[in-house]
Amino acid sequence: MTKPLLLFVEYALGLLDDFNTVFQGEAPLLHELQPRVKKLIDNFASNFMRMNYVRSASKVDPHLTSQYMPLSGVYLGVGNYGELEKLCSGDQELVLTGCRNFYIEAILQLQKRFDFKDSFFSTIQQIIPKNVRERTPPTLQLIFSTFPTLRNACDPAKAETEWRALSLLSTEELGLQTEDELRLLSAETFWVLVLKLKSSAGLLFPNVAVVITFIFSLSYSNAIAERVFSFLKINRNDRRNCLSNDVLLGLMRTKFLMKNTQSTAATIKFPDKLIDRVQKVRANAVIVGDEF
């Protein structure tokens, strides 16, 4: 009975691990949090509940026994094909019941930890390319109502005009071939393309740029902050407790430069101007300038 359970745990925890890995990254994914959590819950629910119910339910109730599949239909992962049949009927029932209980508890815990009652989570879906092109919703009113501070950072009326113009933007202006290609882009890729567009006066969508930059700066996970604290703990230790904030900031920027350019300490390239200025300063002097 041990092997089928271990194979099931490998499958079920794999789904949770994949979900966790995505949200341990540094890409702006707050707008994907709600649909990804729902997808994970639906995935678990479809393994022991009727598909028609899972598809139609806005919020799955894992205790709704009338929608359960027969116990023999509980899915335990691809690794369990043929393994369950090696057990006696009594052990099979114990394994299937235990695995179904795992699914139920996983769904309940996810629903407890991710409460999407706040309208914010539906509002932020507005930045997805498909919704931008379809003007769903048709205005930025919900975003400005949710984040009133944006009214001080940009012109809401001009942002509204720019937002509506996005739905009329041709795919050729974004360097794409078809509308379907555009709609398949991730939100981050789409907005990188949009915010690169310029006119003779500067950015083509300056007010929308403020809104989108603000939304993408919202944190969806504490992973990034934890990495910064880990970096500080490693570099400012008992033997290096006099490091100044400027030195720590410089180390941190160098680390991220190496990561973003896939460089090592032996291959990293610094601008010639920076190298020249470093060679000319006296020991312990501060390099003043904002070119770098």
Rank of each mutant, 00 (worst) to 15 (best):
M1G: 04
F48M: 10
F147W: 14
L168H: 02
S46F: 05
E173M: 09
Q92R: 15
G82N: 03
P62N: 05
V210M: 01
G25R: 11
F121C: 02
G90C: 01
I268N: 06
M252T: 04
S199W: 01
N152Q: 15
I215E: 04
F120I: 02
D118C: 10
F8G: 04
S58D: 13
F292R: 06
P62F: 02
Y103P: 10
H63N: 13
V194E: 01
K273P: 05
G202L: 13
L30Y: 03
N245W: 01
K259V: 10
Y68D: 10
F23L: 11
D61Q: 00
I224W: 11
Q109R: 13
E83L: 04
G202D: 08
P148W: 12
V208P: 00
V95C: 14
N47T: 02
E172T: 09
L166V: 03
V95Q: 15
R239A: 04
Q24A: 07
T171K: 12
V211D: 01
M51C: 00
N152G: 13
L174D: 06
V210H: 00
F144D: 04
C154R: 03
P138V: 15
K39S: 13
L110N: 04
R113Y: 02
L185G: 03
C154S: 02
P137C: 14
F231K: 00
D18R: 10
L76W: 05
S89H: 08
